[in-house]
Amino acid sequence: MLKKTLGLVLLFALAIAPSFAFAQEKKSGSKLEKDILYRSEEGLDDYAKKQCRLDVHYPSEKGFATVVWFHGGGLTGGDKAIPAYLKDQGYAVVSANYRHHPHVNAPVYIEDAAAAVAWTFANIESYGGDPNKIFVSGHSAGGYLTSMVTLDKRWLAAHQIDADQIAGAIPHSGHTITHFTVRKERGIDSLKVVVDDLAPLNHVRKDAPPILLTTGDREMEMIGRYEENAYLWRMFQEAGHPDCTLRELEGFDHGNMVQPAALLMKPFVKKHASGK
């Protein structure tokens, strides 16, 4: 019953969201800077220089929270264009592209995601943001990247950042086992479950930042996606993690669950940005 009620509430919210978001954007005075190179080390090839870029959409007030956003696309495609439903929600959005298979293989995608988060820690204050209020989120492949850079501390440690500085993680419908594209690179069948060092499930820890897991309806999602996230949630409970929540959005499939799931981000960000 609770699940069904949540679905109805989200459907109503979505019905009024486009006009409300437009009204907010007209009045907000928010700004957008595009195509900022977030990796500048020597030796980047042309493809890296093209893909390793991000957009920053930020409000006019100071001290705001920021969500670093990673798009979906199976690690093989997608774009950093910021969805309208993420704009003017009281937080900034740093939307980052990353390199795709088959141009690169794992773990390059994760390294790029970590570099984009590191760029945000180093630069968001110059836009008026608070570096203590940085969240990471994304949909599908972006949800997988969100979990990897948050839970496996080595990727941000390469940039001298402790992943526990992340204020919260919100992976939407992300793999929690090793990603199917990573398995494909290794010649592993898509139905063979692998949980290795490139699986978020392999990095469950009690001291991870607060986590909000969302998926679509278990009967409409990509195969096993709800069950993967439910198992990750259970393992966090077993580990004694104090703040991991799972939300299943009834009536929404893998592709269309992200907009209603984004509605759940706002209270999560507000709560954890306030330190409560």
Rank of each mutant, 00 (worst) to 15 (best):
L44I: 06
M1G: 15
N229M: 10
L2V: 14
H101A: 14
E185T: 13
Q24S: 09
M235K: 12
M220F: 08
L145T: 02
V108E: 10
K87M: 12
Y109W: 10
H139N: 09
D162H: 06
S28C: 07
Y58I: 08
R99G: 05
L201M: 15
Y38Q: 06
A239K: 01
K153A: 14
P59N: 07
A81D: 12
L249P: 11
H179V: 02
F252H: 08
P131S: 11
G142E: 08
D46Y: 03
T214M: 06
K184V: 07
A84T: 15
G138W: 04
V136G: 00
F20V: 15
G224R: 06
A261W: 05
M257D: 10
D253C: 09
K62W: 12
V56Y: 03
G143S: 07
L86N: 03
G187I: 09
R183M: 11
S28D: 12
E25P: 02
I211C: 00
G275Q: 04
Q259I: 14
I223G: 10
H159A: 11
L10K: 00
W155R: 08
W233P: 04
E111W: 06
L86F: 10
T176V: 11
K27C: 05
E185M: 10
Q89W: 07
I16Q: 00
N229W: 06
F20R: 10
P242H: 00
A48E: 13
Y85C: 01
R53Q: 14
S147T: 06
T214L: 02
D152E: 09
P131I: 05
E33F: 08
E25M: 09
V182T: 11
W233C: 01
T120E: 07
D197G: 05
G142K: 09
Y85K: 01
I82P: 00
G138M: 02
G275D: 01
V182K: 03
I82M: 00
S28E: 12
M148I: 05
G142D: 10
F236H: 05
L8G: 10
F121G: 07
G168M: 04
F180N: 11
A15P: 10
P210G: 02
L8P: 06
F135K: 02
I170M: 15
Y58T: 09
D46E: 15
V194R: 00
K206H: 03
W119P: 04
K34L: 09
Y98S: 07
G138Q: 04
S95N: 09
K184R: 15
I177Y: 13
A84E: 13
